[in-house]
């Protein structure tokens, strides 16, 4: 509802409209530059590109550090998202349906990673887990990413739950469902759009994360963004642009799937509670 209102407001209001267009330009134009340079036939990262070829895509796919990093990033993102949902859903249920005192505090606690700078979190994790507890770097990164995604999981699934009538679960119980069956047959279907949204959002956030991954990287486990960052520092060829374009294409595919399954309005409506 508020999304619709702000959209019409934006269209009507000339200043807001101009700002919105400017916002899209600032966001989209650099992406277009990157995509364009990725198709160059030349060997420098330059716009406009020298000729047209798919050469750098081939190079990017054949470049082992990138491909290894993709696998690492995917592993990390999938696991961290899964963990965040596994932890986040019970927390959401406790906040929205539980009869526990201090709900506000609990909610605050689980949303705090949103406001604490990631570098601080990363440093804390580095000192406590890697140095203090001698956890390996993948476990530490996984914990760090999970913490990073938890607020999204709690917030987005919470938004779905807040929309659902609490009497639904009570009705299910009254009709003979145990608490667990009521959860599986009634609450979970209500949570589905929230779970999908939170999952996608979490996955993308983890996959693109730089600060935490940068702090907690080691030689044998590096995520894609960190690897690309390293690469850019050493050489300036269009392979990075090609890699970025591939990531972008994958993201677009995910976005389309998301739109088809739950719809963007729902996903982002879920966040602006």
């Amino acid at each position: 509802m508020s999304a619709v209102m702000s959209r019409t407001a934006r269209l009507r209001h000339p200043v807001a409209g101009t700002l919105a267009v400017a916002g899209y330009v600032v966001m989209i134009v650099p992406i277009l530059f990157v995509v364009a340079t990725a198709f160059t036939a030349g060997s420098t990262l330059r716009f406009p590109p020298d000729g047209l070829s798919l050469r750098w895509f081939g190079e990017a796919v054949a470049y082992t550090p990138f491909m290894e990093a993709v696998v690492s990033s995917l592993q990390l993102a999938v696991l961290a998202t899964g963990l965040a949902l596994l932890l986040g859903v019970p927390v959401t249920l406790a906040i929205h349906r539980g009869k526990i005192p201090g709900k506000g505090l609990l909610e605050g606690l689980f949303l705090s990673p949103l406001v604490v700078p990631e570098l601080v979190v990363g440093l804390a994790l580095y000192q406590q887990l890697m140095i203090g507890l001698r956890l390996d770097n993948f476990t530490t990164l996984l914990l760090g990413h999970t913490a990073l995604l938890l607020p999204y999981a709690v917030r987005v699934t919470g938004a779905s739950l807040a929309l659902a009538d609490p009497a639904l679960e009570e009705a299910a119980r009254g009709l003979g469902a145990s608490p667990l069956r009521a959860f599986v047959t009634v609450t979970l279907p209500m949570l589905r759009p929230g779970l999908i949204s939170a999952g996608l959002l979490g996955f993308v956030t983890s996959f693109n994360n730089v600060p935490l991954s940068l702090l907690l990287q080691t030689r044998d486990f590096r995520t894609l963004p960190v690897t690309m960052l390293d690469y850019v520092q050493q050489s300036y060829d269009p392979m990075v642009a090609a890699a970025s374009t591939l990531v972008l294409a994958a993201t677009v595919v995910v976005a389309i799937v998301a739109e088809r399954t739950v719809g963007f309005a729902k996903i982002f409506g879920g966040i602006n509670r």
Binding site: A167, L168, E170, P189
Partner: peptide, 20 residues
């Protein structure tokens, strides 16, 4: 006794029909 063991039919003010 929890509600699921009471076998009472409740109609809520909001009806609480399962939307899915």
């Amino acid at each position: 006794l929890p509600p699921e063991k009471r076998n009472l039919g409740m109609v809520f003010q909001s009806y609480a029909l399962f939307p899915h």
